[in-house]
Design a protein around this nucleic acid. Structure first.
Lengths: 214, 214
DNA sequence: TAGATTGTTAATCGATTAACAATC
DNA sequence: TAGATTGTTAATCGATTAACAATC
């Protein structure tokens, strides 16, 4: 079987944005779009769009452009959101509950199946119909319920310890909201959401905005 | 006054991570560190660390390395977190409340002063001592309370409309949690936190992880 | 001083943009 | 067919890494 050359993370970062714009175009009833029109809409170069897409296949047609619905579907497949991903959230604090209460993920096939917390007062409650279980049941739950992704919304020390206990349960990815880097075997993918770093970048760009502006 | 050459966003993205590691080194009582030791700790090249830092000044000393406390302070200054940034959050839903309840930001000088919501039932309540006001008071509040940053945790259509009304109030940045791109004048900096895009990248890297692994 | 390590220049690598032949 | 627009190669640009002279 042909080995595909690895796609750079720079490209992967752009795919969800293409996907979002294509979804909006579908909602507007647009059937086809050229790389040139698309580039104007998104504020990127047409060249980049064509290059990016051609890493995955020839989705366009000369003289016509791209079929919006088809391209949307293809990028969805590439992103792996044509299938269901089962998730559990560890940490039923404000962020954990916010994730559980956010229905947008469900639409894209990300199903939050359960929450876990060490606080007995939270155990047994539910958020948006998603139940909170005691933390010591998490490994067992993952194994029995085909859980692929664990979202960690706990303090950093707890996150580091938990990441260790999750190795070997069969999970494929960690969605890490703790402000630390997790060291796990490389077959477990870690995606970080570091809100304080995001805020610091905003701060930098505000403070230096005369320099940043082009 | 000498014009500084603009710093690339690639570098700016790395600064908060340096800052975090330096904070941890301070907590561990480490006084000095060479770019080589630091590079091993962080998993980047020593060359990159030296190049990055030298964009802002010569913080090190030949034959010695970098003074941890000093470098931490300098990067803090560069990031603009040596000062207070007043924030309001629009949208007192799960995410807005999670932000208001998260005390880590406060420590770095990011002060969440108020929440705003259009739901009268939420108005008058408070989260972590931060009060919820009616949405139509937000412009007035921003002007009177020296607000620099607005966090938007509302649905995308509301976010687009609100971004427009915020232009001209004097805010310097928008921390955008809505799943859309905001079009505002370029003197207002937008920092996006697009959780569904983060989740899609995780999905991609999970599904293609045999290709992604090096 | 000798050793260590920075600051900085030069070389390499990768990502973006431009250009255009292929083709619908 | 003629016009439009892709797919793809080549050129450019920018970011990363390597190397080493300067210097503490």
């Amino acid at each position: 079987m042909m080995e595909q050359k690895p796609i750079s993370q720079a490209i992967i970062k752009r795919l969800p944005r293409y996907y979002r714009y294509l979804g909006e175009l579908i909602a507007q009833g647009v059937e086809r779009i050229s790389s040139n029109e698309f580039s104007k809409l998104m504020g990127v170069t047409a060249s980049q769009i064509r290059q990016d897409l051609n890493n995955f296949g020839g989705f366009g047609q000369q003289g016509y452009g791209y079929n919006v619905k088809n391209l949307y579907m293809e990028i969805g497949k590439i992103l792996g959101i044509d299938r269901v991903h089962n998730i559990v959230v560890i940490g039923a604090g404000n962020f954990g509950r916010a994730l559980a209460g956010y229905s947008d993920f469900e639409r894209r096939g990300f199903r939050i199946k359960a929450l876990f917390d060490r606080d007995p007062k939270k155990v047994g409650t539910d958020i948006n119909g998603i139940e909170v279980y005691p933390i010591d049941q998490v490994q067992d739950y993952i194994r029995k319920n085909n859980i692929e992704i664990v979202a960690l919304t706990v303090p950093k020390d707890a996150a580091i310890a938990l990441a260790q206990t999750l190795v070997g349960t069969g999970i494929k990815g960690i969605w890490n909201f703790a402000h630390t880097d997790l060291r796990v075997p490389k077959d477990i993918i870690v995606e970080n959401v570091h809100l304080s770093e995001s805020l610091m970048r905003l701060s930098y760009n505000i403070v230096h905005r005369d320099k940043v502006l082009k």
